[in-house]
Simulated scan of single mutants.
Amino acid sequence: MTEYSVHLISRLYPLRYLFNRPALVGRLMRWLVLLTKFDIHYVTQKSIRGSIVVDHLASLPISDDRAIDDDFPDEDVAIVTSLSGWHMYFDGIANHSGYRIGVLLISSHGDQIPRFVRLAFLDRYPATNNIVEYETYILGLETALELGIRQMEVFGDSNMVLRHIQGEWNTRDVKLRPYHAYLELLVGRFDDLRYTHLPRAYNQFVDALATLASMIDIPTDTVVRHLLIESRSVPTYCCLIDEAEFDDGLPWYHDIYQFLRLGAYLEAATAKDKRALRQLTTRFMICGETLYRRSADGMLLLCLDRTSVDRVMREVHAGVYGPHMGEHMLTCKIMRTNYFWLTMETDCCQFV
């Protein structure tokens, strides 16, 4: 490769950063020095979505006299609508600890009712995977009937149970016939039931419930409260910032500036505080009368005080060229614009 000019086509942004950054230090510079003996030109890979259809048509050519049928293959599929009301998801699992089944009922308002059961009758009545799937489906129907549900759409990854209950396949296994007869009695108590085969990848929550039941051993006298799963959109430290912070009118970098300019510490500073300040100031420098912070790649970032922070965030986020990016991207964008302050990430999270 040393005798040729190489065009590196890639969408790896760290490589683009390595080849295009004007100033590099440390390990990045050592990597770039090792690559200088090769004539490498980085080229950003374009989107390949537009060429997928062209490649597919090129691989399946047709003759000029062949008519192209562009009709929809089954127009009845286009008018199928989802049953408004309750949805049921079911799944079972088997491992060295035994058999576990899980059911999830979802109302039209999005309320979720999970239920999972451990099958403890295996010593007297040997079970198979198909029996476990029937037990799971029956558990879901019984739970729905207890709640007074008479219309429901059923989703499951057991194609066998769904085919049997719809009459498409015959139940030939002797051990499954009692289950099938009882299942037909339960189905007859519903006004409307619809079935949809769901791949396992889209049935993860119920699969997790069944796995949870197989991993833990709950004593008989233990009461398990409702399972609460929360979702957090921002890191914890962004939610616990004390807004009533003491403001003495000085910028956040006042101590750093005074130490770099005069070598002075605060009057009440302890030995630990002085050591921390000396370590902190290694990344800062004064040019003229302005304080800068040296980034990891050697670029100088202008340190901003509180009066300029809001204006910079608003301009970068929603200014003339502002793309209204997320909080973490906004932090990186401001640093690429060569600005810095200590609480950048927290302030950007709160701003966005």
Rank of each mutant, 00 (worst) to 15 (best):
S5K: 12
V25C: 13
G26I: 08
R30Y: 02
T36F: 07
K37N: 00
F38Y: 15
V43H: 13
K46L: 06
S47I: 09
L57Q: 10
A58L: 11
L60P: 00
D65S: 15
A67D: 12
I68S: 13
D69L: 13
D69C: 14
S84L: 13
D91V: 07
D91Q: 02
G92E: 04
A94E: 12
S97H: 14
I101A: 00
S107C: 03
S108W: 13
G110S: 08
Q112R: 11
R118I: 07
L119Q: 01
L122P: 00
A127V: 10
N130G: 10
E133Q: 02
E135K: 09
Y137P: 01
E142R: 13
T143N: 00
L145D: 04
I149K: 03
V154D: 00
V154E: 02
G156Q: 02
V161N: 00
T171P: 04
R172D: 11
D173T: 10
V174A: 11
G188R: 01
R194S: 02
V206K: 04
L209Y: 07
T211I: 05
S214L: 12
I218P: 08
P219V: 03
T222H: 10
S231Q: 12
V234L: 15
E243Y: 09
D248C: 15
P251N: 05
P251M: 06
Y253P: 01
Q258H: 09
R261W: 10
G263H: 02
E267Q: 13
A269L: 03
A271K: 08
R278Y: 07
F284Y: 14
G288H: 14
E289S: 15
R294I: 15
M299V: 09
L302K: 05
C303P: 04
V309T: 14
V320A: 14
V320P: 06
G322P: 01
M335T: 09
T343P: 04
M344K: 06
D347N: 13
C348D: 03
